[in-house]
Computed example of a mutant assay.
Amino acid sequence: MMVNGWIGLTLKHSISCCVCFLGVRSCTVSVDQAEFLEVLLDQVTANISCQYTHSVCAGEKKIYWFQYLASKHGEIKQSDRVTVKSEDGNTILKINNTRVQDSGIYICGIAFLGSSGPTLVFTGRGTTLTIREKPDVMVTPTNTVLIVLCTLLILYCIAVFSYYFIKTKCRIWKAIRNKPGFTMGAAKTFGTRSVFQAIAAEYHKKYDRKTPKKNPVVEDETIYQNTQDLH
């Protein structure tokens, strides 16, 4: 009777181990997290998402969040500033009033608490959260639109200026050609003469005051001047 009792107990223990082993092997869980997340202080809130799927997992499901910061690490406890919102297949860690010190690694964990079997815990690879005071790249969609508009405006101004410049030049050239006695040689002479006249006018404008003026001859009527030749 004693031997039969020990055999029965051993068999029961073996069956229990096999059941637990098969339960562990049959439970499959997949946890997916974004590798990096950058948030500006102006955005105020950081949302770290975690997606998961599970199949044939017994026991109560529980979701954990862990943080590894520069100054501390451990499980995240919910508060007024840090909350966790979970739905079927998705959980979001929300950090309000973000600070630069919140930068760190955040890991999502899924646990199945078995009543009789071992506890199964699965974690993601973690999301590296970076809180920046100012963006490294100043090019935003709004800035891009403004740059494009400014470029188009500059091109439009250049086109309008070129159009009126060519139109005015053609009008002047047409007026010169319509003058009687116009020849190509005269046009070249006129153009050269205009250039020299402009240079001379600029020269006199700059150096007229510096050039000493000759004293004019003053004729005094009281002085007798003999203009006749003496014989």
Rank of each mutant, 00 (worst) to 15 (best):
G8T: 11
M184H: 07
G104I: 02
T140W: 09
S116I: 14
K61L: 12
R177T: 08
Y106Q: 03
G114L: 01
K94S: 10
K77Y: 04
A111I: 02
E35N: 06
T222F: 14
L11R: 07
R209F: 10
N143L: 15
I154F: 07
R171S: 11
S162M: 08
D220G: 02
V160N: 03
L37N: 03
T142M: 05
K72S: 15
G109K: 08
L113C: 05
L120F: 05
T222Y: 07
G191L: 13
V148M: 09
I166A: 08
C157Q: 12
K61G: 04
D102W: 02
K62T: 14
N178G: 07
F196T: 13
K77D: 06
S162L: 10
N97G: 06
K85I: 12
G181K: 11
Y207F: 15
A186Q: 10
V44P: 00
K188R: 13
E221D: 09
G59L: 00
T119P: 00
V100F: 05
I95V: 11
S116M: 13
V121A: 06
Y156Q: 12
V218L: 09
A111Y: 01
R125L: 14
K77L: 13
L120Q: 05
G126N: 02
S55F: 08
F36K: 13
Q197Y: 13
V29E: 00
R193N: 14
A111F: 01
C27G: 04
V218N: 02
Q101F: 07
K72M: 07
K206G: 03
D208F: 11
W173H: 10
C50R: 00
I7C: 11
Y106W: 03
S103V: 05
S115L: 15
I147R: 10
I176M: 07
V160C: 06
R193A: 15
I223K: 12
G74V: 02
E219D: 05
T192C: 07
E219C: 09
Y164D: 02
S86W: 00
G59H: 01
W173A: 11
T83E: 09
K210D: 12
Y156L: 15
R25K: 11
T10Y: 04
T189C: 13
L113E: 11
M2R: 12
A200F: 13
G114F: 01
V148G: 03
Y203A: 13
K12R: 09
Q67L: 04
S71R: 08
G114Q: 14
T168D: 06
L41G: 00
A159Q: 04
R25T: 11
T227Y: 09
T227D: 06
T140S: 09
D42G: 05
C17I: 15
L40H: 02
N47W: 03
N143E: 13
Q225K: 15
G74S: 03
P216C: 01
N4G: 15
N178Y: 03
F36L: 12
G185L: 13
H73L: 10
I95R: 00
S116P: 01
C150S: 14
R125N: 14
Q225G: 06
T127H: 01
R132E: 08
L146H: 08
D32V: 14
T10K: 07
P141I: 06
D42I: 08
E87S: 14
T128W: 04
C18D: 08
D136I: 07
N90H: 11
K62D: 12
S115V: 09
E35D: 10
K12D: 09
G59V: 03
L152Q: 02
